[in-house]
Design a protein around this nucleic acid. Structure first.
Lengths: 236, 236
DNA sequence: CGTTGAGTTGACCATCGTCAACAGGAGTGG
DNA sequence: CCACTCCTGTTGACGATGGTCAACTCAACG
């Protein structure tokens, strides 16, 4: 189930030269501490649309995403699915450090990660209180985002949900790669639907309507934002 | 806006004899450390249906609930409301430690809290890494609960939402006061609706239907669970 | 050139929201 | 003590938002 490329040439990783260090948990560590972390780390490359782990699996690893995109989801017994988040470069997976994963993680596109065994990582935490503090801030921030997502899921209409999602995605990509009116949307319509509590048809229709109103334009890789004011107004 | 009783006779508090220490953050501290915490603490008593703080207010305090129930909610500009949680004894408010509150907090019933100024509390954290670790575990656990709430809000039907809510509430009360088939529901139907992404009418109708099916019985203080198996099945 | 999977669009329908009326209890004041 | 209001909760009638089912396009791929 876990199909990881671990050859040196495709996955070599030097923490001190890592592109995402500033936004990842490693940003809390000094250069000499990074070396300790690097010794515990296995770089991993995940092909598109493949399983990283499934909800309920023994959580013997934690991960830090360095490139690509991971879909985090929870499933009901009858097949209904809720996507609880998309992990982008700098994001940490398995913050809860519990014995089993609370959600499934699948790559949306080709993704590279730093992989740590949970037990040594926990021991490392015991020696690095500032890293615990960083993880705490990260968890608290994720909680704030989760609460905003609850508002979206519980109280917003389909068009507002789509607008919110596009604005949030734009902000996240902007922080990583700089602002751009063309949004790369690597996930499928189904993924978006499962993230927003909608069906694929409603997502498709709503995006088409936004395009008909010249608020966005559908392009092969995603969408282009034409009227940011209007999109922001819809997102509220 | 903040109407707190702080007289010694009604609000006296001795951490070492606190009923909720085991379930609250203070459980991470030794007896001698508790004394330091106690020096920073202002006990507070909040009457029913009163404001503790509002979303966007300067977050100059953090709180630990010792009795009662607090509703945590976020509002949209047009009045739509999402309740993001109910805080019970042992729960901590303002985990994020950010400069502004991310949600509003109002008492559902008469509630007592321990109140700490944010700045000294943060300095205390710098000296108590095991307390940071406790807060981290707490935040990570809240995040897991938030993800389950996303599934509920995005993918469950009204009857499943009500059943889930009742089962979760039962578990929480059970952990605090021991299992009981009679659930005290201190919040209004509107609060439940805003928590579950429904309207008050749908909540009322759904509860009535569950009662008509003899799965629950509506009693003055809340509901009595008659058929736990069936309720659990609905909650999935 | 057939197959597969993602996406789009239309027709229809169900769940849940909206609007309205009403019941019952708590509090208030004459 | 009783009328009155207010608030919460319940129930019914109706309607809209978004779900379901189905057909179709298009690009990728063997």
């Amino acid at each position: 189930m876990l199909s990881l490329c671990q050859t040196a040439d495709t996955c070599s990783h030097v923490c001190s030269r890592c592109q995402v260090r500033a936004v990842a948990i490693c940003g809390a560590l000094e250069i000499d501490e990074l070396a300790d972390l690097e010794r515990m780390l296995t770089p991993a490359l995940l092909p598109p649309k493949s399983v990283l782990f499934a909800e309920g699996d023994t959580a013997d690893h934690v991960f830090s995403v360095t490139s690509g995109c991971i879909r985090l989801s929870k499933d009901l017994a009858d097949g209904r699915r809720q996507v609880v988040g998309f992990a982008l470069p700098g994001d940490f997976l398995n913050l809860s450090l519990e014995s089993k994963f609370g959600f499934s993680a699948d790559s949306v596109e080709s993704t590279s990660l730093c992989r740590f065994q949970t037990a040594p990582f926990k021991r490392f935490l015991d020696r690095k209180p500032h890293l615990v503090r960083k993880l705490y801030d990260l968890a608290a921030h994720e909680l704030t985002i989760a609460q905003e997502q609850m508002v979206l899921l519980g109280r917003r209409r389909a068009d507002e949900k789509i607008a919110c999602f596009l604005m949030n995605w734009r902000d996240r990509l902007g922080r990583l790669t700089g602002a751009d009116h063309t949004l790369h949307l690597p996930m499928t319509r189904q993924d978006m639907a499962d993230y927003l509590g909608l069906t694929i048809e409603t997502v498709s229709r709503t995006i088409s309507t936004l395009a008909r109103k010249k608020i966005i334009m559908i392009v092969p890789e995603g969408v282009r934002v034409l009227d940011l004011q209007e999109l922001r107004a819809l997102a509220g």
